[in-house]
Simulated assay, not measured.
Amino acid sequence: MKTLARYAALNSYVEVSQSVGIDPARLMRGVGLDPADLGLPDRWIPAVAIARLLEQSAATSGHQDFGLRLAERRRLANLGPLSLVIREESDLRSALGMLIRHENMYNEALRMRMSVMNGLATVRIGFEFGESAQTRQATELAVGVLHRLLRDFLGTLWQPVTVCFTHPPPADASTHRKFFGPAVKFEHEFNGIVFYASDLDTPNKMADPQLRTYAQQFLDSLEPSKETTTLNRVRELVELLLPSGRCSVEQIARSLGVDRRTVHRHLADANETFSSVLNSIRTELAEHMVSNRRYSLTEIATLLSFSSSSNFSRWFRGRFGCSPSQWRASGVPLAPVASAASPTA
């Protein structure tokens, strides 16, 4: 399956884009992302779309340091719920172990590995998108975020032994030197950061030992099962693809990198079908859109991928017991009258 990442990976994307003179909304739409969803940091989207957006943003703006400019604005909180746990770990070793162990909670494509040898600790960073994609900007963003995390734990005067990138140096490396210091190297054999192993045992001054157990329990409660993760992936893709008119189980399967039978099997494991998921998403969106008069009923039918307004009205009546125009005129809160009927395309 294609790997997903949280929209939080694009925190500050609008501000950085505008600072270098490019249109963030146009570029996001160009890779299939909706700018309005930036307000939903915990929503999952294809990780490869983020990587492509960063590459196009760097190329369009002429700033090869675009990924680093994003990293400059990152904070620990950008990791979402995981940040609450990491900040309570007793030392850097435990914090990095937690970050690496639960990397799929914020970016399923990210691969981080740590090794310790000859007095040096090395954290290597890579990506697995499920398809070919350029990763220079995504890599610099990820390495930059890791560097900021290390400084949060070790202090602003801390310096790494080496910051490594496999790609060639930019035409102007001033941002890199300012961000990482003089230890940055390009055309190296791996991407990542090398630092003294003794740093791993540095106590975490932010930690409260009494909160650590509660933080771990909170993290455990957020760990989804594989079935739930697959169901959530399908739900997110259905919502993403509905307005395009391409929301089919075949398209969902292609987006996940599997065949349609695999999608059906995973949904069945979660006691769902593709039709039930599609109908559920349509119901949620219809409740919002019909109550908002900025959308005409014809527009809503199109956005929910119905072939005609009459098909939408027929589905709506079966779901809510009245036509959308009758409900809009009454202003009474919507409530489904029965279990969802099979959606009509």
Rank of each mutant, 00 (worst) to 15 (best):
S291G: 12
A51R: 02
G245C: 04
M289G: 02
D91C: 12
D220R: 13
L219F: 02
A207C: 02
A142W: 07
D208Q: 13
G257W: 01
S248G: 05
A340K: 09
R74Q: 08
H102L: 06
L146W: 02
V290K: 01
A25G: 10
P41G: 04
D37P: 01
V14K: 12
V163S: 01
L4I: 12
S90H: 14
K178V: 10
E128T: 12
E55R: 00
V20G: 09
D259L: 05
V143L: 03
N232K: 08
R261C: 10
T262V: 14
L304C: 04
Q56M: 13
A59P: 01
Q56P: 09
S330N: 02
K226C: 12
T156R: 13
Q134T: 13
V48C: 10
A338G: 06
L84S: 10
D23K: 04
P81L: 09
V332H: 14
F306R: 07
K2C: 12
V145E: 14
N104D: 14
E223K: 15
A253L: 03
M112Y: 08
A338D: 06
S296V: 05
T344M: 15
R148S: 12
Y295D: 03
S280L: 11
T166H: 03
V161C: 02
L120Q: 11
S275A: 15
Q18D: 12
H147M: 11
I281T: 11
L53P: 00
S83T: 00
R328S: 06
D23S: 10
A253F: 06
P168R: 11
D208K: 15
E227R: 10
S17T: 01
S57D: 04
L70F: 05
S280E: 14
S83I: 05
P169H: 10
A215F: 03
V238S: 02
N11F: 04
P168K: 08
L237H: 05
P324M: 04
T228I: 13
H63V: 12
A25M: 05
S330D: 08
F165Y: 14
I45E: 07
V234A: 01
L222M: 12
Q137F: 01
D65F: 01
L157H: 13
G245V: 09
L110S: 07
L99G: 02
R212S: 10
V184E: 05
S313N: 07
M206D: 14
V123G: 02
L146Y: 03
A329Q: 07
V123N: 01
D65Y: 04
D269L: 13
A95Y: 00
F274Y: 11
